[in-house]
Write a protein that binds this DNA or RNA. Sequence first.
RNA 1: UGGGGAAUCGUUCAAUGGUAGGACAGCGGACUCUGACUCCGUCAAUCAAGGUUCGAAUCCUUGUUCCCCAGCCA
Length: 561
Amino acid sequence: MPEAENHAPNDFIRDIIDEDLKTNKHDGRVATRFPPEPNGYIHIGHAKSVCLNFGLARQYGGTCNLRLDDTDPAGESMEYVESIIRDVHWLGFDWGKGLYYASGYFERLYQFAVELIKKSDAYVCSLTPEEIREYRGSFTEPGRESPYRNRSVEENLDLFARMRAGEFADGSQVLRAKIDMAAPNVVMRDPVIYRIKRETHYRTGDEWVIYPMYDFAHCLSDALERITHSICTLEFENNRPLYDWIVERLIPAERPKQIEFARLNVSYTVLSKRRLIELVQNNHVHGWDDPRMPTVSGMRRRGYTPEAVRNFCAAIGVAKNDNLVDAALLEHCVRDDLNERAPRAMCVLRPLKVVIDNYPESQMEDFDCANHPQKPHMGTRKIPFSKVLYIERDDFMEDPPKKYNRLGPGREVRLRNAYVVKYQSMEKDEKTGEIRQINCTYDPATRNAPPADGRKVQGVIHWISAAHAVPAEVRLYERLFTVEDPGSMENCLEYLNPNSLTVLTTCYVEQSLKNPAPGSQYQFERLGYFCADEKDTKDGRPVFNRVVSLRDSWTKVAARG
RNA sequence: UGGGGAAUCGUUCAAUGGUAGGACAGCGGACUCUGACUCCGUCAAUCAAGGUUCGAAUCCUUGUUCCCCAGCCA
């Protein structure tokens, strides 16, 4: 099954690791980590990183930690931590005992900062935030040194201790690394490494009023965990010199190698945390696990499988090119996996009543239907057939085009798994002109056989016996945005797809689907893959999400005329 | 503008001086009690210009385009 995952070609990161292994770089160890900040739910882009980091550990017999990078209490919460843990597990990965929090290192990080001060490599700066920005210079102008840059070690030690003790107002002091205000890389112009922020931390409460910055905490956390390959996204490339600068001064024996790869973008959706939070908070979607969301929770609720997501991550590869991956590839991976495992069933989305004139009023037959046409071992189930049926409204046309392989006046079609029926008449609502009912006759000889005279029928359509139909709600999903690359647009909310959700409340499913297991997936034949909504499916009243439609070559033909 | 990155079919990832290949998408066909699946076929790319070489996507030179960085976010 994980064929795609195993046969993925080597990428540049694996090349680097192979080389490191060859030179016995870290005694042959491979240790990675997945380091999300718990300030949102993880999404398909994170899944790429999860598959990469945990996949590397798996492939090289190494380890991969899950580390919550929680150095900024604003916006972080336990709810997010729990969602991340659940989602990474669901994706199929486990970190064993390797669950860590940057906040778990706060005391050690503080001591490292003290050490840096003692080496004269850090100082407390009393400039205002605005002044710090001004002093930083610009891309073309070097920065200017802070007037506080040359405070004595003793004074810095005292000031830093008092920062921790809460003697200063938020934003009034910071600890900065003493590097080079004229560095061409602005990251190296005496970066702030600690700030004062009176905000309750979801784990450490009010124990701290100072918090380390990412650049200080992340590299040291990596080194403390003896990470060998610290894999992150391209935007951190500029920070790598600082990463190395800090670790070299504090834990030189354990310097991990930071390697950057291109973050994932997927067409017709957004993947920036800011954008996703916006969608949730402004109620453009119904929460982080809305099936339209590209979050792991959203995909799970939608009915995607972890295998499909992993296969997708293997298929997109890992490189340093900016990319916008076609959402069709994700859908392909989902179909590919669900085609293998989803039992088939019948569902009528928009019912149209059909009466079989020559079928006895009181008669009922059970048909044995294959749960999977290519997989006999998946068994069969009984489906009742009777005089009054529902078919899909789309499967009847009063005046069909030539290539229409369905029912219409004078036409004959196969009812899937049942008889061939022939059109006889229709009833219309006199006022609206809406077709209310179709009358057909059936050919009793066609139960498990083609028409005896060898005549070809127009096609095969699905159906539900009216007397046995189970009412269901079905939710159809389409892409969230109408433009390919909404993430690149400032006003992307204007391009939200108004049809991203269609709720159908008058659907019928076959009896076997009366009480589906929450989250279970099915292929509704000729329609697509659907899953029983894990939250809203109630006893005897199923709710299905359309995971993805079946590949459809008909709408294209129809559109051409 | 200074620094850091990246440029290969429509999209995405390979090819590590020696036949530019795969996947997705597209197109055409076969099969079919799912207009699905499967199968077969097909279209289609080395940013540009020079140079080195028997041979260049790969090495060199020059140029072009795109992305990232001036948070006390990560």
